[in-house]
Design a protein around this nucleic acid. Structure first.
Lengths: 212, 212
DNA sequence: ATTGACATACCAACCGGTTGGTATCAATGA
DNA sequence: TCATTGATACCAACCGGTTGGTATGTCAAT
């Protein structure tokens, strides 16, 4: 243990940075080592393969983003629906700087390696799904507060489904942002999502019923 | 010209298939040649580089999907809003079979290569943007039919913005589908998008303006 | 005989992974 | 106290298969 938990940590940080910027396949082991300031020997000491690093990087990403969201200001908002909307506003606010600085490692890797490296894909999916799960309590509470059935039998949608839909919008927004070279489209899409959620909860407030 | 427009076309078809399944970097030139039943000589006769094939494949994809959508049944729907919703239903209906059969080549490649191969990324973006543009007339017409301002100054959103948002949802849905191993999440997200659009147009319908 | 459409054979660079070794430290025991 | 042991962390050099790309040849049609 002694001197370096460093090398492993530095490799994971480098992986998050480089893979977000260049993709998994285009990032070579030597790229990683160079960015982390270690040698290839260190790499294969800590990870049995490049694929294993990919899996670990997804976990590292989960931990980092988990900490970011756990301490984000939106968590302090009392009302569940407003907290959810504040979460989306927070997601909107952090869309800045270079593309590779605000896009999602998990979504990027998942899309690229889902067929070739199922283990990495599973780790990425877990990262996205567990983040989505943190939204469910807000949505369920908001539904209950407005007399909606969180199970979905009366609304046609569920708390977990809406939570995943939010992630769908965010992931899709990152793709279009990469295409257009900036976050403007992503902001616009988050605005649409916010508008949707407002309408969802407002609509049922106004009328006792709704179904497809 | 003579004997084979074949090789080039077969290589492009193979590229659409393989790149969707394995990603651009993971698909080797020899994979492509093998799948197309030609040799490497033919490959580099028709394309100066692998990157050039990527660009051409994006164009090929645009042409193929363009034809698919141009002849799709939803085009026959009279009412613009209903036509838009029928389009989304059509997108929902074609989510079947293997993942790589219904996901979008443009979105997959764009996400993977946007930094390393800007030319490919631009072609992919063009593919997505031009498809989104086919939705704009429906949205604008639907807005006008309901007395909305298609420019967005009164609604906070525009026809082109909503068209792009639809693509955002679809692209994001493909990512989550790859993560969960099936199209269920994607269907659910399209349902949310349909519900959003219904609410969007219904909400303004209910307010002081026009009625059918 | 020239050109376009391929095929065959080949190469140099690259890349993931291995090997064999060194530095450091903690625990052990004489 | 200090040599020994063993385990961990790391380094430098190397290896062999793969990959994008090339050089050269063939053949049919103009």
């Amino acid at each position: 243990m002694s001197r370096s938990v460093n090398a492993r940590e530095k490799l994971l940080d480098a992986a998050v940075r480089l893979v977000r910027a260049k993709g998994f396949a285009a990032t070579t082991v030597e790229d990683l080592c160079g960015a982390a300031g270690v040698t290839k020997g260190a790499f294969f000491h800590h990870f049995p393969s490049k694929e294993a690093l990919g899996v670990a990087a997804a976990g590292h990403w989960s931990a980092k983003t988990g900490a970011l969201f756990a301490t984000a200001p939106y968590q302090q908002v009392e009302d569940p629906l407003e907290r959810l909307l504040a979460y989306l506003q927070f997601r909107r606010d952090i869309l800045g700087g270079e593309l590779c600085e605000f896009t999602c490692l998990a979504g990027t890797m998942l899309q690229e390696v889902y067929a070739e490296h199922p283990a990495i894909a599973a780790a990425c999916h877990e990262s996205i799904a567990s983040h989505a799960a943190t939204l469910e309590p807000m949505i369920s509470a908001a539904m209950q507060a407005r007399g909606l059935d969180p199970g979905g039998s009366s609304t046609g949608w569920t708390a977990s489904g809406l939570a995943l839909h939010s992630q769908v919008v965010l992931q899709g927004a990152f793709i279009l942002a990469k295409g257009s070279g900036g976050p403007a489209i992503a902001r616009d899409s988050i605005d649409h999502l916010v508008r949707y959620i407002r309408l969802l909860f407002a609509a049922v407030n106004a009328s006792p019923h709704s179904s497809p």
